[in-house]
Design a protein around this nucleic acid. Structure first.
Lengths: 110, 110
DNA sequence: AATTTATATCAATATATCATGAATTATGGA
DNA sequence: TCCATAATTCATGATATATTGATATAAATT
């Protein structure tokens, strides 16, 4: 994860459809969802969604797997972790406790 | 933090100078840094930096305080926490342990 | 092999964003 | 009050990005 990777990732997340997709995939978890279902659920045209999925893929925020005729997409938690680590690296000038609060609260809710 | 706030924040972070600024301010911690010093350290023109600081401010990623003639900027950890929480909310379809790894690693290094 | 379903790619237009130079506001000092 | 310093605002040209309709690829079914 270098500066360019991070810029690509944040750029990917700065568009409504793509942020919706990422959060949807974060939400559905390991089951993932097919490209077509994602487009239908979010009410976005097929080719527009394909382009947006491609951007998220390039950004390392989602993975995909072919499954017969469909392609199933998943949130990429490794890529996500790398991005967040890059963002918050070396924080608070050697006093990590100061920004611990910013991280603690990202607890996953049931 | 709603969808629009999050889009503004990610959009703010998707530009090199602004991502540099945010990480710089995360790094220097509670001491913050004046607008002029930020521009000098990152070798960006003063008005360009001003515009970029304004974007980060609107996005809730940095705060500022007037200090005599200078204006001192700080990373806004509350805003940052809200953004990351929004991004990762309700993750893994009720199995939070699955994405705990993505969050754990954002430990602050000394 | 022809058809259907699922997804991706292409070219074009429309929209948004960036950095810059010039001008402006705000604070502190002579 | 006049000047210097610090930062912001404005208008503009250049660049980048998004969506769309049309088309292409890829896999499964008949």
């Amino acid at each position: 994860m270098d500066m360019n990777d991070a810029l690509n990732a944040f750029s990917a997340l700065s568009q409504k459809t793509r942020l919706d997709v990422f959060r949807l995939l974060i939400n559905v978890g390991p089951e993932g969802m097919s490209a077509g279902d994602i487009a239908e659920v979010l009410d976005v045209r097929q080719n527009t969604m394909s382009a947006n999925l491609s951007v998220l893929l390039q950004a390392g925020l989602v993975r995909n797997e072919r499954e017969g005729r469909s392609i199933r997409y998943f949130a990429d938690l490794d890529g996500t972790r790398e991005l967040l680590t890059f963002l918050m690296a070396d924080c608070c000038g050697g006093h990590p406790e100061l920004c611990a609060q910013a991280i603690e609260a990202i607890a996953c809710r049931k």
